[in-house]
Each structure stands twice: as structure tokens, then as C-alpha cells.
Design a protein around this nucleic acid. Structure first.
Lengths: 141, 141
DNA sequence: TTAATAAAGGATAAAAAGATCTTTAAATCT
DNA sequence: AGATTTAAAGATCTTTTTATCCTTTATTAA
């Protein structure tokens, strides 16, 4: 459903949200350890999230990353990494699939896509951080 | 959502279902033309569908492919090409995500996955062929 | 000014997508 | 029956995308 990079991105964002204690930064090593991801690759995803204005970063000693000062939906994270394809493109890959020129599965999948889109737009990172903080939800095996 | 190969496979199956006139076969060129896919790659997917017992093939002149003699769900096609990952694996990629060790988005996504699974298991190829036959549904731009 | 850390970009590896070519099987036509 | 033609099966190769790693530069706090 999501690319590997996007899976990491979602975990990164949820993690950073769960450790967000007014302005405290988490470093790359910390993050990669928390979500069990390859460090170098994680660094690249972090850069993308910064460029997408979902994270802020600071260099130097005690530098690191933190989420920006507003609540963020899952869709924002997904779109930042995977683009809008998942909620826009035809599931059968038709370039021009639409109401006028629908693919055979159009109606069936529109309903499904709307459901998916609904979950992604109405779920905020703040809705998910709780379980992680309490320790009954996990970001790694 | 689906791999490119899987998109092709779904289109192939819907197409073959729509042209299924008592035992008539469609050849590779015919199929690739109908769904606008690269011939060689399409041949490979056709083989997979034959091995998965979703298609029957016959060699030689007037040879080709046809769907087997039972109705097939979209899920069967998806699983044959992409495997069960989409409806089984954790959306965040956790190996051990489950009721006991849930990821933060577990509940949110379970609902979504069930919806997706529902559509895929209750939609049969025979439900989709009609529009293609009537010409108001399309398998290529 | 030095040690720590993110930013940036290129290099490498692996997987997916697609193309090419050879072999095998089936049908048709002598 | 045998030769020829047609088309799928199979193997191998190239290209593209995705994932991962590494090295260098810029920044900042102590």
C-alpha cells in the first residue's frame, strides 16, 4: 500500500510526536533506533519531511528533529513521501479514468478510495501518539 | 496500491471475461492490444495466471487464453500476482503487528483493510465484464 | 576552536518492470 | 504421416525504480 520510505516516514512522525516535550529534539540515531530503520536511509527521509515542512531540524551538538507546531494528518505524511497517487490515480492504472471514462472497477474502488482517504485525512498524529507514550502500541517488532 | 503487473492482470482477467464466448480463445497480441500493455511483459503475467489456475491456455494456431470455468474474485487475481501482503501485512510494515502487539495505527487500518478485503472478495469478474461488453467501461485510455 | 550533528549529493545494491530470443506444443495443409 | 506455421512456455538480458550506504560540507553549542 505504502512504499517502504512512507512506512518509515509515518513511524518517524508518530515517534517524534510521542517524544515531543516542548522543543526537545531527537537525533537521527535515536529515531532510527526507535523505529528500527537503517540510519542512512532514515536520514534521507528526514530531509524530505523537513523540506515538506512537516519537521524542523537543527544542526550541531544537541541538534536533531522535531515536528512543526501544528497537528498533522496521516495524509500529509503519505503525500509528502509517496505523492497523491494512492488517493488520486485509478487502481487499474488508467491515465484517464474518470466519471466519463471509467474503468470497469471504477465505482467499486471509488468507495474504497474514499474510505481510505477518509481515514488518512481524519487521523492526526496526535490521535496515535498516546498508545506509544503509554507503551501499549509499538513502532518496532 | 497494486503492482503494475497486478494492474495488468486485473485488466487481462476482466478483458478475457468480457470476450468469453463459449471456449473462444484470445491471443497474446489481442490481449496486449486490448489493455494497452507491453506484449512481452504481458506474456509473463499470462503465464503466472495460468500457473495460478485462473486461466487456461492452448498453443498452436488459433491458440490463446481463456478464463477457467468458474467465477473468480478480484482477490484471487490480486493474490496470484502480488501475494497476500496487501490484506495481511501491517500497513506500517511491522513484522509482528497484531492484536497483542499493535502498531499505533492498528485499529484505524484494520477497518480500512477489512473494507478493502470486502470489496476484493465480493467483487467477481462477472460483475465487471458487463460495462466492457456494453462499451461504457474501458480497459485502456 | 573543536566535537557533534544535520544537509546534501553521489555511489551501490536489490527489486521490479520490460524486452529479446529460443524452445516446445498444437493445428493445418499438403 | 510429415512439414510448416502459429502461438505459448521458458530462459536470459536490459532498463528503471526503490532502497541503502558513504563521504563531504555546513552549522552550532560547549
Amino acid at each position: 500500500m505504502f512504499s517502504k520510505a512512507c512506512e518509515y516516514a509515518l513511524k518517524i512522525m508518530i515517534y517524534l510526536c510521542s517524544v515531543k516535550e516542548r522543543g526537545k529534539l531527537a537525533g537521527l540515531k535515536d529515531i532510527a533506533g526507535a523505529i528500527d530503520s537503517p540510519e542512512a536511509y532514515t536520514a534521507k527521509i528526514l530531509q524530505q519531511l523537513v523540506r515538506a515542512d512537516l519537521l524542523e531540524s537543527l544542526r550541531g551538538p544537541s541538534g536533531g528533529f522535531k515536528v512543526v507546531g501544528r497537528d498533522i494528518t496521516l495524509l500529509e505524511v503519505v503525500v509528502a513521501i509517496d505523492g497523491e497517487g494512492l488517493v488520486k490515480n485509478c487502481v487499474l492504472g488508467l491515465k484517464e479514468c474518470s466519471g466519463e471514462y471509467p474503468c470497469p472497477a471504477h465505482d467499486k474502488f471509488i468507495a474504497m478510495r474514499d474510505h481510505l482517504k477518509g481515514v488518512l485525512t481524519t487521523t492526526y498524529l496526535s490521535d496515535l501518539k498516546g498508545g506509544v507514550i503509554e507503551g501499549n502500541r509499538f513502532l518496532r517488532v
